[in-house]
Design a protein around this nucleic acid. Sequence first.
DNA 1: TCTTAATATACCTTTACACGTATATGCTCT
DNA 2: AGAGCATATACGTGTAAAGGTATATTAAGA
Lengths: 116, 116
Amino acid sequence: MKRVESVFEIIVEPNRRAILNLLVSSQQSVGEIERQLRMPQPTVSKHLRVLREAGFVESTVDAQRRLYRLKPKPLQEVDAWLAPFRRFWSAQVDALERHLDRMDQSTLKKRKTRRR
Amino acid sequence: MKRVESVFEIIVEPNRRAILNLLVSSQQSVGEIERQLRMPQPTVSKHLRVLREAGFVESTVDAQRRLYRLKPKPLQEVDAWLAPFRRFWSAQVDALERHLDRMDQSTLKKRKTRRR
DNA sequence: TCTTAATATACCTTTACACGTATATGCTCT
DNA sequence: AGAGCATATACGTGTAAAGGTATATTAAGA
């Protein structure tokens, strides 16, 4: 076995993203995931193992089923990684607005205030 | 050549994330990236090509150099993908707060208002 | 205890991707 | 035009990860 270096290696896999999207609404058993996503059961189990070992989900036992549910931390890491870029693109928007403001100064139109 | 299916395939590569992190502060030439990240020039150029074709960066020519700079859209897609999960984890926080509120009711302590 | 259901794991094969090295392209200046 | 710098591309190689199929594990019910 080999531990994962980054959360990105987890969410790059489309089936895993699909599973995460399912679990965001409520917890699901393996069989439910299998049916909703139409993927073979071993595939589901393997991806769930990866997700579990990376801390994206946790499971509890319910008779023969296992219920999987989301854990917030790893995706919050992705969110944190995005932070500087968010600052970048709001700076972009601001610059555009200042530019438009300058263009509009001649005609003296009113502009709405900055979003945030 | 083969076009990319998802933005995640781009940002999964650590060197590419490093390049993006460099470019968030200001535009850079290939050589500057090469020196700051201590990676071989062909490696830098190849990753820049991938980033460019996926719309993460654009370049302009400055004599023999090429200046690369960030473009916002693809990373905004990542941000958009995160949205439902952000709702999920703020719901988690809310539930925890309600729980704590209930626990505290006996002692009648005041709690701060919800963040958002 | 035997059978069935639910889930997990093992093994094999294929594929895609990143790296290194070498080389090509293109611009500048003399 | 030729030399030298900056950047891009081509090619060969290793590796890791995902899928499929078969099988193992664990719990439940008759």
